[in-house]
Simulated assay, not measured.
Amino acid sequence: MHIDLSGKTALVTGSTQGIGRAIAVGLARAGARVVVNGRRNDTVEEAVLCVRAEAGTDDVTGAAGDLATAEGTRAVLAAAPDVDVLVNNLGVFGATPPLEIDDAEWLRYFEINVLSAVRMIRAFLPQMRERGWGRILNIASDSAVVIPAEMIHYGMTKTALLSVSRGFAKEAAGSGVTVNSVIAGPTHTAGVEDFVRQLVGDQASWDEAQREFMIKYRPQSLIQRLIEPEEIANMVVYLSSPYASATTGGALRVDGGYVDSILP
């Protein structure tokens, strides 16, 4: 299958590292003009250079702005006013005892992980619908379905993204625009390495720490390892393509078989 996104512009939020950057690279390799997003100009500029080098193309630009704020959103929209493929990847996570999560932290997680995506969809769905073509992908998590006891607030936001995706897919019905969620399983990123160390300690090698983490905290995984960001990106690139024209309103799993359910 040859995926050609030439002539399409893709914005990937939260794409200066990890899954977001892998998605940006994948879309750029498929021929899309890619816009990298992060909060700070310096990290965005660095990520743009990395994506260009990895994808082998210069057709990559940056749009700095904190999408958890209205001001930051305006800055990103000014830098990327016209988008064919929107990937809402921005998100934060961290382990916190449930009874210690205060109101401010609940609201912070909702602002960053959910409302930032809603803002972007509101901005771009009308123009996509007018053109008769568009792709909106919201990066969710296995935590949306299997709520982790150590980060309930994170799981809540990813569950909300599934609802957001399904609802906006209905809003886009019959327009040629598709809206889907990608349920990413436990994935190997720098942030997850820190998270694993937080839970299992620093005494073991990374291979030992990963193995202990999977056995103790993610035993449902059928591949029994962390997923690589590129594996998430492969699904996103497919869903961004014309080949996925009949897939909308869905929650597509790249979770290593972690969620013990047939659906979604």
Rank of each mutant, 00 (worst) to 15 (best):
H2N: 10
L5R: 03
A10H: 03
V12W: 02
Q17W: 00
I19K: 01
I23Y: 08
A28K: 00
R29E: 12
R29F: 00
G31E: 06
G38F: 11
D42Q: 15
V44G: 14
A47K: 07
V48G: 11
V51R: 13
V60H: 08
D66S: 12
A68Y: 08
A70R: 14
A70F: 13
A75G: 00
A75C: 04
V76P: 06
L77H: 09
A78G: 05
A80C: 05
D82H: 02
N88R: 01
N88L: 06
F93P: 00
D103V: 10
S116K: 06
R119C: 15
R122Q: 14
L125A: 15
G134W: 04
N138L: 15
V145G: 03
V146D: 13
I147G: 13
P148W: 03
A149K: 15
M151Q: 15
I152G: 08
H153M: 15
K158M: 13
A160C: 14
F168L: 12
K170P: 07
A173M: 14
G174F: 03
T178I: 10
A184Y: 01
T187E: 06
T187W: 08
H188G: 05
T189V: 06
F195S: 08
R197C: 01
L199N: 04
I215L: 12
I215V: 12
K216Q: 14
Y217P: 03
L226Y: 03
E230I: 02
E231D: 04
A233V: 06
M235Q: 09
V236N: 13
V236M: 13
L239G: 10
Y243T: 09
A244F: 12
S245K: 15
S245Y: 07
T247L: 15
G250C: 15
G250Y: 03
A251V: 09
L252M: 15
V254Q: 09
D255T: 04
G256E: 02
G257I: 10
V259G: 04
